[in-house]
């Protein structure tokens, strides 16, 4: 399943956020970090691809025009995790995930659904939360349940808007490992909006850097995230160093004078 964005204009009715955005095709099995400063349009891009905002241009998934997909196909093939956490209501995690699975995977038998739910709770390491109410969970725990709602459906395209924003380091690693497993095992594509450049460098196959003015740059993380691009995009002086294990890390030294 490959994703292709060609001459895309997207955004809100009176304020398009992107004009004529084109990217090289994103290959099956890719985990792509979508990074950029605040309000640059990361969430807008994900929402547009998810079909929640109008799009003009060619947006194709496996060669098919995404804007022409039926609602059932869209729900089955595209999993979107919004930036907002699931609400703190008296709904237990199991039925939150079950309801999402039921909506997206009406073709599954009850046994298949139960197996998928069992597996996703185990994969994310949140089995102990299954019968806990969302009202009794922390923000991070609710974020994990929201992610389970997406992963359980096993979509070909995952659009995850800041999936680790409420998580501690342990769960950040757990989540990105689970997403990576999903992309590598099933050939799915994951677009993950994030502010954490180090997680992008460590886990992602590609990084899409969105800059103010609607400019976009897609490429391998270590080749794309250069001090020059970081200066242009974020207005910071930064270095790319390597830790004792050889992983590249971004070190932001100071903001550049405007």
């Amino acid at each position: 399943m490959s994703l292709h964005l060609n001459h895309i204009t997207a955004g809100y009715r009176r304020r398009p956020v992107f004009r004529d955005l084109s990217l090289a095709p994103i290959r099956p099995g890719s985990l792509v970090a979508v990074v950029g400063p605040n309000a640059v349009g990361k969430s807008t891009l994900l929402k547009s691809i998810a079909g929640l905002l109008p799009v003009v241009g060619a947006l194709t998934l496996e060669g098919e025009d995404m804007t022409a997909l039926s609602s059932a196909r869209r729900v089955r093939d595209i999993g979107y995790l919004p930036q907002t956490l699931p609400q703190a209501i008296p709904l237990v995690a199991y039925e939150t995930v079950f309801s999402a699975c039921r909506a997206a995977r009406a073709d599954w038998s009850r046994q298949q659904t139960e197996q998928a739910i069992e597996a996703v709770f185990a994969t994310l390491g949140i089995r102990d939360l299954a019968l806990r109410s969302l009202a009794e969970m922390s923000g991070g725990q609710r974020q994990m349940v929201g992610l389970a709602q997406v992963l359980v459906r096993q979509p070909g395209l995952m659009l995850l808007d800041e999936p680790t924003s409420a998580l501690d380091l342990h769960w950040q690693l757990n989540v990105l490992n689970a997403v990576h497993t999903a992309t590598s095992q099933r050939g799915a594509i994951a677009l993950v909006a994030s502010h954490d450049l180090n997680l992008a460098l460590r886990f992602c196959d590609q990084v899409l850097v969105l800059s103010p003015g609607g400019r976009a740059c897609l490429g391998a993380p270590q080749e794309t995230l250069t001090p020059e691009l970081l200066a242009q995009t974020y207005g910071i002086e930064a270095r790319i160093e390597r830790c004792s294990r050889g992983h590249p890390i971004v070190l932001a030294d100071r903001p550049l004078a405007v």
Binding site: V92, Y94, E95, F98, Q111, E114, Q115, A116, I117, E118, A119, V120, F121, A122, T123, L124, G125, R127, A130, L131, L151, Q154, L173, N174, V175, N177, A178, H180, T181, A182, Q185, R186, R202, F203, R245, H247
Partner: peptide
């Protein structure tokens, strides 16, 4: 790239809904 973690050891398609499984607990709930 180190991608080892407890979560990565489990596949999304291998778990079963047995008597002690979540589905059984949820049915009692």
């Amino acid at each position: 790239m180190n991608r080892d973690s407890p979560g990565a050891e489990l596949s999304l398609t291998t778990a079963t809904a047995d008597e002690g499984g979540l589905a059984h607990q949820y049915r009692r709930f």
